[in-house]
Amino acid sequence: MNDDDVVQSFLNEICCTFPEIKLLMDDQDESMTTSKMEAFADATCTAFANGNIGLAQKYLSYMEQKLIDVHPKEFEFIDVYYVEHLFWQASRATKEIGWPLIPTKLKTLYLNFHGTIAT
């Protein structure tokens, strides 16, 4: 499978696992797979902001589990387009709610890029 196929399969898996995310991804340009993953990160923060902590934790747990046996291209999408994008333009309150709930591996990726906790 080439990298584009791996990415499409990954995004499809996310949409099958979380049907509500498909609408957000469909709002992105079809060729902008990176924006589709960023939309998933945004949905995670929106869930925190709306008090839907359980849903946000499901998204985060899914991504944390993907890191166990991940294709390098999937890793890139998790690291660069999901984790690095988490909390982008989020309110301080959303960051305070969400940061303690980020699983360890995702938190490490976030800190490796941003160098500091989300506050």
Rank of each mutant, 00 (worst) to 15 (best):
S31Q: 14
S31M: 13
S31W: 14
S31R: 15
M32C: 14
M32I: 09
M32G: 09
T33S: 12
T34D: 14
T34N: 13
S35E: 09
S35F: 10
K36W: 01
K36D: 01
K36G: 00
K36M: 05
K36F: 01
E38G: 08
E38Y: 10
A39C: 10
F40L: 11
F40P: 00
D42V: 10
D42S: 12
D42K: 12
A43H: 06
A43D: 03
T44F: 05
T44M: 06
C45Y: 03
T46M: 12
A47S: 03
A47N: 00
A47Y: 01
F48L: 04
A49G: 08
N50R: 13
N50A: 14
N50S: 13
G51R: 08
G51L: 09
N52M: 10
N52K: 15
N52G: 09
N52V: 06
G54S: 08
G54N: 08
A56T: 00
Q57H: 10
Q57K: 13
K58D: 05
K58S: 05
K58V: 06
Y59D: 01
Y59M: 03
Y59L: 02
Y59E: 04
Y59S: 01
L60Y: 02
L60C: 04
S61C: 13
S61D: 15
Y62C: 05
M63W: 01
E64P: 02
Q65E: 15
K66T: 06
K66M: 11
L67Y: 08
L67E: 11
I68K: 11
I68P: 09
D69F: 12
D69P: 07
D69W: 09
V70H: 04
V70A: 09
V70Q: 06
P72R: 10
P72F: 10
K73Q: 15
K73D: 13
E74K: 04
E74H: 08
E74W: 03
F75Y: 15
E76G: 12
E76H: 14
E76D: 15
F77Q: 01
F77N: 00
F77L: 07
I78T: 00
I78Q: 00
I78N: 00
D79I: 07
V80G: 07
V80R: 11
Y82K: 02
Y82R: 01
Y82S: 02
E84M: 12
E84R: 14
E84W: 11
H85A: 11
H85K: 15
H85V: 03
H85R: 15
L86Y: 04
L86M: 10
L86G: 02
L86K: 01
L86N: 03
F87R: 02
F87K: 02
W88I: 11
Q89N: 13
Q89G: 08
Q89E: 14
A90R: 04
A90Y: 06
S91F: 09
S91E: 14
S91I: 07
R92P: 07
R92D: 12
A93E: 15
T94M: 10
T94D: 11
K95L: 10
E96C: 13
E96N: 13
E96M: 14
I97R: 06
I97D: 00
I97S: 02
G98E: 00
G98L: 04
W99P: 01
W99A: 05
P100E: 11
L101K: 03
L101S: 03
L101I: 06
I102R: 02
I102H: 03
P103F: 09
P103K: 04
L106P: 02
L106T: 00
L106Y: 07
